[in-house]
């Protein structure tokens, strides 16, 4: 009887977790300013363009390595200036309760748009097929602030790391249940 009740307790906790996950709301994308921006992944067969206006709830699957083309501007009303304006910006990954800036830039320019190519190559042990990572790109151009949020995951299927983590989780769960064993 007690064993059945303990099982129900554990399954109940898992159900609460899953219900909470499925109930997460879909929210918006460009959070500040009128900026526009996109990145093109030419090696992908489908869903090649990651646009800054993409809804946060729509996870974009990026390959483990790629050469991408990017472009962005400060908005339809922005025009080049005669003198250089200082700017700064960066790309931030949101973690639970904190954020981690992975790329940053700073300088001065007369332009209001930029573009080019960028090549990246993530190590093979990078987890693939995971839940989304919320990536925020921000840019401050002489006081004009833009911010866009997209959700990205690395394409692929969960590999041995995920299986190992699940196995260790089961062991830790067994240890937790063993805490309910009476002392002699």
């Amino acid at each position: 009887m007690h064993r059945r009740a303990a099982t129900v307790l554990v399954l109940g906790m898992l159900s609460v977790v899953l219900v909470g996950v499925l109930a997460m709301p879909a929210v918006a994308e460009i959070t500040r300013g009128d900026c526009r921006g996109s990145a093109t992944f030419p090696d992908k067969s489908t869903d090649r363009i990651l646009d800054a206006a993409r809804p946060r709830s729509d996870v974009f699957e990026a390959p483990l390595s790629a050469t991408i083309g990017y472009s962005g501007d400060l908005g339809p009303a922005a025009e080049p200036s005669d003198e250089e304006i200082p700017f700064e910006g960066g790309v931030v990954i949101r973690l639970p309760r904190l954020s981690w800036q992975i790329v940053g830039w700073v300088g001065a320019t007369k332009e209001v748009s930029a573009g080019g190519e960028y090549t990246y190559d993530l190590p093979d042990f990078t987890p693939q097929g995971t839940g989304g990572m919320q990536v925020t790109a921000w840019h401050n151009h002489g006081g004009t602030v833009c911010e866009a949020v997209v959700t990205v995951s690395i394409s692929g299927s969960p590999g041995g790391v995920a299986v190992g983590a699940a196995a260790v989780t089961v062991l830790a769960g067994a240890g937790t249940l063993a805490a309910g064993r009476r002392k002699p």
Binding site: G131, G132, Q134
Partner: peptide
């Protein structure tokens, strides 16, 4: 594990 199996996002 839930993150690695794609059930929850990293910022959850």
């Amino acid at each position: 594990s839930l993150f690695l199996w794609g059930v929850i996002p990293l910022h959850s």
